[in-house]
Amino acid sequence: MKLFRTLGLGFMVGIFLFLAACGGSDNGSNANGSSPLNIAFLPKAINNPYFDTAANGGKDAAGELKGTFKQVGPSEASASEQVTYITTLTQQHVSAIVVSANDPNALAPALKRAIQQGIKVVSYDSDVAQDARQLFINQANSEDIGRIQVQTLAKQLNYTGEIAILSAASTATNQNTWIQFMKDELNKPKYKNMKLVKVAYGNDDDQKSFNETLGLLQAYPNLKGIISPTTVGIAAAARAVESVSKGGKVLITGLGTPNQMRKYVKDGTSPSFALWDPGQLGYLAYYAASALVQGKIKGQPGETFDAGKLGKKTIENNNVVLLGPPTVFDKDNIDEFNF
């Protein structure tokens, strides 16, 4: 009996050791020894064509990397609701949160708690506070984005007339950065006959952006152009201008997707506008998050990582990864794009 008990104890210890060795799926390792890719995207708002396109890019990357992808978020742009989603994702122990912030500071405490629990945090499109994420995937150089929108409208208006800006939320990091560069561009001597009369906010909501545009047209009867650096706002502004028969009289530019703006480009309401490919932005964000999760990078300037079809990417100052320069779309090239 003593021998049996001894053998039984040794047998049980062996079983426990065997289970521990085979428990890779439980302790967060794949067959190749790397961490699983359970990555969640949290955009400013869901059911937004821009973020839907970015999500498709993320899904493509997940397929290539054999990871999982999901997207959650508020139906309307709301920093407080984003905080709730961050808390839930943290409780679910996702491996990474990829977030576009409605407010850089409001989200920071929740994101820091996620990082403390070992979750990787990557911001994309609109940054969060730098100490609340490991990487920011920037669609393009912020200065280039801001200045190109002014330059585009100025050429259309022959550098003369009153203009307005229709932004998203007043707290949106990317919008405010771009607008600051717009204002700086407008201070150059060649724009002396152009005047910025107002910055309005549509909160990335279609109806509010539409109404804000109508308000601008009523308050400033001599308005010649509107810059809307948001895909929701630019389409709503174009529609609003046409609804009061001012298409081609008050020109619209900013940041939009070719599919939503094709009609307005061809009828002259928005002769040209700019954007990058949001699908590639989501694709790059997923690859960056996966590199962090798998320990291939720590998120430090100078590090490089593989980004699939986008090639090698380098982390720049302030832990930023750039997608590339924006593209200007007009009637000559818009039919070449489908997103």
Rank of each mutant, 00 (worst) to 15 (best):
Q130F: 06
G299A: 11
P74W: 07
A31M: 00
F210A: 13
D144R: 13
N141S: 14
Q82T: 05
I46M: 02
S170F: 09
L157Q: 07
Q117Y: 09
M261R: 05
G10M: 08
L107V: 06
S75I: 14
A129K: 10
D60P: 04
L216V: 12
Y201E: 10
I163K: 01
W276L: 03
K296W: 00
L17W: 05
D206Y: 15
L255D: 01
S272D: 13
G58H: 07
I119L: 02
E81S: 15
A54F: 08
V293N: 02
I115L: 11
L322M: 14
K66V: 08
D184G: 12
K331W: 11
A55P: 07
P104C: 11
V232T: 15
N141M: 08
V94P: 03
G308I: 08
E64S: 08
L255I: 14
D52N: 12
D131C: 03
P229E: 05
D26A: 14
S123M: 04
A106E: 02
I163V: 14
V128H: 01
I148N: 14
E316D: 04
A62V: 10
L310R: 13
K195W: 02
E212Q: 15
K198M: 13
I119H: 01
D52S: 12
A61M: 09
L216H: 03
P229Y: 12
G299E: 02
G302S: 05
V99F: 00
I145Q: 02
Q149K: 10
D26W: 15
T314A: 10
V121A: 01
L214C: 04
A200E: 11
N56Y: 10
T327C: 02
S245G: 05
W276R: 05
I46A: 01
K313R: 12
T230E: 08
A21Y: 12
S100M: 03
G247Y: 13
G57V: 11
A62S: 14
A31E: 00
D205A: 11
K309T: 15
V122N: 01
Q139L: 14
G23R: 07
K224P: 09
N158C: 09
D184A: 13
S170T: 15
Y220G: 01
V197Y: 03
G254L: 15
L7V: 13
G302H: 04
I252H: 14
S290Y: 08
Q91L: 13
A172D: 06
A101I: 01
S245H: 14
V150C: 07
V128C: 04
Q117D: 10
G308D: 09
K190Q: 14
K59S: 02
T6L: 15
S270K: 10
D267W: 10
A219P: 07
D127P: 03
P49K: 00
E212D: 12
Y85E: 07
T152W: 08
T90S: 05
I115D: 03
